[in-house]
Structure formats: structure tokens, C-alpha cells
Design a protein around this nucleic acid. Structure first.
Lengths: 201, 201
DNA sequence: ATAATCTTTGACACTGGGTGCCGTTTTGCT
DNA sequence: AGCAAAACGGCACCCAGTGTCAAAGATTAT
């Protein structure tokens, strides 16, 4: 009966085509720049029609961020609290684990960074995605106390953490992603943990 | 000789038309939503051709943020250090002064907030603008010490401050902009000042 | 005031992202 | 093999944004 073992042909093709589109897009963006590469070229290179390409990715911008869903899911998993941890410790552990992932995917991260920096609208799009991460971190900070004041503080703290993480990541990528991101993250998060009131630490 | 007292007719017309475009845009966005309102409608309502409208605002999105330049200039002025202030005190003073401005412009702020929230790309655009504020705050944190480590810390702190300011502003606007924004800001900035390490304060 | 000059305007045409529609092909199942 | 559902691709269309250029407007000098 030759039943497909796990995934149907449909799902396999879907993944292949998504991958082909992303690959074609990154090649063209790197070659001639994001703005100059048209969706016609990208889809043709991936062996699909323009119309079909837009069924796989709702917009040209989405092509630049193919893994946001997976990254968010990973963050959510990492944010599951462990016994004996304070909320801040949970958040730090999750962030540093994510840092490790970024380091393993250095090449892709750098390529994406360069494309995003080249086009302001992409930067905006990226920041938008971070809102979901922000909400996840907010939930991590908000364990039991659900008063309005506690919720507010959790939200504000989550915003601060995301800001710090973004700035750290950018610092790392601007330097060519060669330094130790985990060490860098540990340093910047410690700064946040201890407060900004004093000038030197 | 009937010489124009201060501004030539040219400059006056420019300002009038910019204002007419913003007014028309806000009216239409509120009435039928940002996406549904076309630039044809906006420009016609403002008494201009579409082509000319695009000479006053480079994009439809820019119509939503007519005061970003002025806001940034104000922030930069406020961030001028005063004698005896620590960097954090300077930043806090500037932020709270800005909060006062937001409170005085409550109606416009709320209208803008609603439009921005309705369209993800606008949120991205707004976040983009904040990068300039972030750079200004970074400079305020970085007084004399220009070692790589100090610069990094200033950048990270600026990112955290912007994150906190944004979250505070959003909190205030979601609540209808009725509460005391200055008090709210003082509270959230204090949180940042003292650190996130402890659960309760 | 009037002419000369420089700027701004608006119509036209065009590019490119994104979408609704629909007939045709591919895929999954029996 | 045969049938239903899903995916594909082509077409026409909308709208944001831009280059071009002749006409209208503002500014300055005479």
C-alpha cells in the first residue's frame, strides 16, 4: 500500500517550496538588494508562479523572516518555569538559551541582519514580531499576583528585557557575530537586574 | 510695500497644505479605516492632486506621524545635561517632561494610537522612529567614558529605557489616556532604576 | 506694474506588491 | 483506474509610489 510513513506528499512539497522560495529570495536579496529584487524574479527562480509564491508567503517581507513561528515557540517552551527559580532567573535562562541558538545559526543570522538593516520597513516588521516575544516574557514575569499594578510591572519589565535583548543582539551582529553572545547577554542582563541608578558597576 | 512680515507666501502655503493633508487623512482614517482610505481620497479632500500629496508626505504612512521631527528635537533639547545630575536623572527628567506634553495633547495622541494599532505596518513604522530617540538617550547615558564597554552599556540602557517608555505609554493609552501619565512614568522608571532582580519592591 | 526667473503643481504613464477569480492540474484516497 | 479535494497559474484588477514634463504660481529685479 506504500503509505507515506509520516508526512504526506502534500506537506513535503509545501515545505520544499517554502524552502525554495526562501533560498531564492536570500540569494537575490544578497545579489541585487531587497528593493531591487522583484517577486517575479524570486518566484521564477524558485520554480513557481508569482501568484503561487504569494500563497506561501503573504508578503515579500515575510520571506525575510521564515522562522519567526519556530523561534517564538522555542521561547515559549524555554519560559516554562522551573522549581526554585525567580521569574527573572527564568527569563534570563530562556534568553541565554536563545543566544546559544543564535550562535549556532550564525551565518543565517548575519545574512538576515544585513537585509533587514538595508530596508527600514523590514526593521519595523522585525520589531513587530518582537511584540509576541514581549507578551511571552510578560507572562513569565507574572506568576501569581494578578493585581493591576503587578500586571503593569510585568509588562514594563518585559519591554525592558526585549529592549536589552535586541540591543545586545544588534551589538553582536554589528561586530560580525564573532564574539561570545552568551557572555555578552549575561553581562547586559546583569546590568538590568541590578538597576541603572548607579553610573558604574 | 506689503512685505510678508515673517514667512513668505511659499512657506505659508506649504504648512497649510501639510496641515490640510493631515486633517483629511485623520478624518478619513477614523471614518473608514486606514487601509480602506486611498491616497486619492485623502488628497482630493485636501484639495490637492495625488501626485502633489506625495510631494508633501513621502508615503501614506508618514501622514500618520506628522510630528515626529518636532518630538525628537524636543527630546534632544530636554536631554541636555544639567549640573549635578546623574545620567539617569537627566533621562528621567526628559521622559517625564515628555509625558507632560503627551498629556496636553491627549486627543491627538489617542487618535494616532488607534490608527497605529489598527495596522501592523504602522506599529513597525512607529517603532522605527523610536530608534532615533534611542540614539539620543544613548548619548545622554554616555557622558565621558568612551570605552567599548561603556558604550555598550549606554546602548543597552537606552534600549531598556525606550522599552519602558513605550510600554508605559501604551498602558496609558489603552486605558483611554485618563490616568496621570507623569505619575505612571515615575513609577515605571523607578522600577528600572532599582533593578528587576527582586520580585517585589 | 511688468517681465524674467525659479519653484511648485498636476496630468500621464509606468513599476511593483498584493488579491479575487476561475479553469486546469496535481494529489490523496478508494 | 477513477473521483473529490486541494493546489496551481494565468488574468485582470487595485493601490502605493515615482519619473517626466508642460503649465501655473510665486519671487525678485527692473
Amino acid at each position: 500500500m506504500e503509505v507515506p510513513i509520516e508526512a504526506g506528499l502534500r506537506e513535503k512539497n509545501t515545505e520544499e517550496r517554502r524552502a525554495a522560495l526562501v533560498e531564492a529570495a536570500y540569494a537575490l536579496f544578497a545579489q541585487k538588494g531587497y528593493a531591487a529584487a522583484t517577486m517575479d524574479e524570486v518566484s521564477t527562480r524558485a520554480g513557481l508562479s508569482r501568484r503561487t509564491a504569494f500563497r506561501y508567503f503573504a508578503s515579500k517581507e515575510d520571506l525575510v523572516f521564515p522562522h519567526r513561528e519556530a523561534r517564538l515557540a522555542l521561547l515559549n517552551a524555554l519560559l516554562a518555569a522551573r522549581a526554585g527559580e525567580t521569574p527573572f532567573e527564568t527569563v534570563r535562562r530562556a534568553c541565554l538559551a536563545l543566544a546559544r541558538h543564535y550562535q549556532e545559526d550564525r551565518a543565517n543570522g548575519l545574512a538576515q541582519f544585513r537585509i533587514v538593516e538595508s530596508e527600514p520597513s523590514l526593521l519595523g516588521r522585525e520589531l513587530q514580531f518582537d511584540r509576541h516575544s514581549e507578551e511571552a516574557i510578560e507572562r513569565a514575569f507574572l506568576r501569581t499576583d494578578i493585581s493591576a499594578r503587578a500586571r503593569r510591572r510585568a509588562r514594563v519589565r518585559a519591554a525592558a528585557v526585549i529592549g536589552v535583548v535586541r540591543a545586545t543582539l544588534r551589538e553582536w551582529l554589528e561586530g560580525g557575530a564573532t564574539s561570545d553572545l552568551v557572555r555578552l547577554g549575561r553581562e547586559t542582563l546583569a546590568d538590568l537586574e541590578h538597576g541603572f541608578g548607579d553610573t558604574s558597576d
